[in-house]
Design a protein around this nucleic acid. Sequence first.
DNA 1: CGAACGGTTGAGAGAACTCAACTGAAGTGG
DNA 2: CCACTTCAGTTGAGTTCTCTCAACCGTTCG
Lengths: 252, 252
Amino acid sequence: MQTTLAPIEAPFARPQRLVPAAPAAATGQRIADRLRLIETVLAPKRRIVHAGDVIYRSGEAFSHLYLLNSGLFKLLSVSAEGREQVVGLKFRGDWMGFGAIAKGAYACDAVAMDTAEVWTVPYDELLRACAAHPALIEIVHEAMSSEIMRDRDSLTAMSTLPADARVVAFLHDWAAALADRGLRADQFSLRLTRAEIGNYLGLTLETVSRVLSKLVREQLITFNAPSRRDVCIPDFDALALFVQRRAARDLH
Amino acid sequence: MQTTLAPIEAPFARPQRLVPAAPAAATGQRIADRLRLIETVLAPKRRIVHAGDVIYRSGEAFSHLYLLNSGLFKLLSVSAEGREQVVGLKFRGDWMGFGAIAKGAYACDAVAMDTAEVWTVPYDELLRACAAHPALIEIVHEAMSSEIMRDRDSLTAMSTLPADARVVAFLHDWAAALADRGLRADQFSLRLTRAEIGNYLGLTLETVSRVLSKLVREQLITFNAPSRRDVCIPDFDALALFVQRRAARDLH
DNA sequence: CGAACGGTTGAGAGAACTCAACTGAAGTGG
DNA sequence: CCACTTCAGTTGAGTTCTCTCAACCGTTCG
């Protein structure tokens, strides 16, 4: 797979994600609390969007951050030649647009995959509000920090995991993201095509399809109805274990 | 390589990097300016470290950010089993520790690869200073934003580029990082072993070695002395072109 | 001098990709 | 209402790329 400097374990093992069985009472509470604070302090403009709607486009001047209150977004890095690369998936409570601060322009397209509610936060207004509300700055830093960690984990997964473990880690993280938000994680609809999943994971759509078929054979997942997009995950921890085993494999 | 949603070009093409021929007068000025501001506002504690020294370790409680004033650092994600993964390389002007804000603990080891000067910035002090100096907050946000973008670009490269282009992109980015800091970019010493480069890029050390040999044959690089770590890059733009071509290859 | 280490190179194996055929579902127009 | 098309998905066969295993070289260091 790649060069081993020393033995490694599950690279996708994000501490917060590996504790999916959070007390039901607290499930999704942190995220909701933060949203409420943002709401009261900033009174952001709310906006309902539908699948396919684009919040910002690559190249546009940066001015706003966006906070997802519901729904699902994908971030697409679009090259000059028009090829697209999925570089991120955003759930409720996630911010969009952090990457644009440094360059003063968005570097990707933010596309809704669903009916969603987006809160619009003018960046300069946010900065002013930060001066008045110290808690705000910490929330923003925490969100950026999380994004950095998530990217880093993805990078590690990409460089250490074989195809099947990558797909499993993807499912695991998706389920964990839902669980974090208090949504049911044992059964959900992937809203991406095989091509999009493959694009995101650095695999071909055929490989993704083959892996999913294999996972069904191995009973790690099942599909509801013939749609083949509604996944059931009978044993969440088995996913993490699969990834771990697969990563451990090449340490002899 | 991976699923194509639409045609793509060079994924490593980071706008700021693709303009390496910055006016000599301004070269490295932005970074120096920011360092100077931090220095005057925060008066951070300076610290000289040597190759192999560790600034923080995975698992330690988060309390400080670190700003690199000179030298080179690597960030190592270390698993429970002790296997290491290079997840980042830091140059002068780069911050270390952003990833730790969210979880309150560092998730990787920061290891000096060189004699280096590190500035120590207590995070709570930084937050207080931000309230007084609005410019400071923008600098920090910009640094975090840059890190997000860099990770995202690496992810794209990992998922779209074949082995040779990945190595070339790595050299290109290294040279660009040096150029950004006013250092000579046409000739420099890679301070990583083949194993470390491979680990970072998700390749084996043998593949890295083979690619480098091929690049020498194709005159994209040369080595100084038999050390095989001192690289000459006769034509910087040729590197970007190589990556671009290699990425464009699979769009038929 | 011998051991350890970084690096190079070759041969064979294995993983993922490409190309291609096929299915089923959904949508369109006659 | 039913051909016809399109699109997502599955599966197979062959190819290609990268990895694994191995031998070997040169340098450094005890």
